[in-house]
Design a protein around this nucleic acid. Structure first.
Length: 109
DNA sequence: ACTTTGACTTCGG
DNA sequence: TCCGAAGCCAAAG
């Protein structure tokens, strides 16, 4: 599954971005956003800078965050304040034939 | 086999 | 808009 996630991340084209949750979902593990982060941190050769937190926010702390910002900017991604303009730059993964249905979540409300 | 660990996500205040 | 709490799941030790 680590491989599946890594593969999903590699699919993100230059100039576009995605989120942890979206990547996890695309890889077939909708709830494993956190693991995506871990994969990004461990696996090398991935376009890690194209993966953002929900809403297009940079989750990387410190200088790495600045570097991410820089790299994305270099790819043509534009920022709306502290967030990436997801509406315009989020990469949509090809829908896999609902193999893993995840159903509704969020028990709270 | 159990515990820890994440660059998360979402809700409510 | 920002902050804290709770839920979440697989990989690594």
């Amino acid at each position: 599954m680590t491989a599946a996630i890594a593969a999903a991340i590699r699919q993100i084209p230059n100039g576009q971005v995605s989120t942890y949750g979206a990547v996890a979902k695309a890889a077939g593990y909708p709830r494993c956003a956190r693991h995506v982060a871990k994969v990004l941190n461990q696996v090398r050769g991935l376009p890690w800078q194209r993966v953002l937190g929900s809403g297009g926010s940079i989750s990387l702390p410190g200088e790495l965050g600045l570097e991410q910002h820089f790299l994305l900017k270099a790819e043509g991604v534009k920022f709306r304040g502290r967030r990436v303009d997801m509406k315009a730059f989020e990469h949509l993964f090809p829908k896999r034939s609902k193999v893993l249905s995840k159903g509704a979540r969020m028990p709270k409300k």
